[in-house]
Design a binder for these strands. Sequence first.
DNA 1: ATTACTGTACTAGCACAATAATACAATATA
DNA 2: TATATTGTATTATTGTGCTAGTACAGTAAT
Lengths: 119, 119
Amino acid sequence: MAWSFDKHTPVYLQIAGRIRNDIIRGVYPPDSQIPSVRQLALTAAVNPNTVQHALTALEAEGLIYSESTAGRFVTGNTELIESAKQQAARELVEEFLRRAQELSITKEQLIKMLEEENG
Amino acid sequence: MAWSFDKHTPVYLQIAGRIRNDIIRGVYPPDSQIPSVRQLALTAAVNPNTVQHALTALEAEGLIYSESTAGRFVTGNTELIESAKQQAARELVEEFLRRAQELSITKEQLIKMLEEENG
DNA sequence: ATTACTGTACTAGCACAATAATACAATATA
DNA sequence: TATATTGTATTATTGTGCTAGTACAGTAAT
């Protein structure tokens, strides 16, 4: 199925985020090859240039590297991946707390709401 | 101080969100007047048209209404405000859990991380 | 009556995300 | 050798968020 995107945030950032998450989760293991630009463009139902934009961003982060004409691969640096995972988790929690504060919701209320959620 | 905005999301949505939160939190009480378009534009350091765009969105939600030449006012419908508060909290938690799932972080880990945060 | 404030409307222009359509060099494979 | 696939680059076009500037009508206060 074609990926679904939020209307109000750049598609290339959403694609980069999704692939970054897949690397962090191990869907794309270290040193493994990721799908080609054209294949990802087909899967996501977007223009190849948009995918290229996203992958360039991930390459700048060091999470992937491109082997000339062979394709793109996940970094073998597992420490970098672990670091990215920690950072993503930290940013997630921090943004959550910040937005909760903007709504004057206390941490205790948040934990209660989380426990009541079915997940 | 001028408001700070995230680079990658439309400013008018961020302004609308901020004012919505202020209504929800009671910073702008029911039936009270909110600052004028031009005043908000000065405060936020953006163009008046951008503020107008944001306020039009809030008006469509029913949270504010405009009195011709007198100004804009928060709705007197406290149930609507309460409803908006519940919805905002629910969406916050749901998005948080969804993004955590994308990182393969369990609910138990999240609660532990929240408790360890200083807030 | 004049002044100052309100909301509202309109045009023009800039920046950027995104699409579309190619094109080229390098490599692996049939 | 020929073909397909890889990453990469280029140009043009469209849509939209945002700014800038201006204008008008209605109301309250001086």
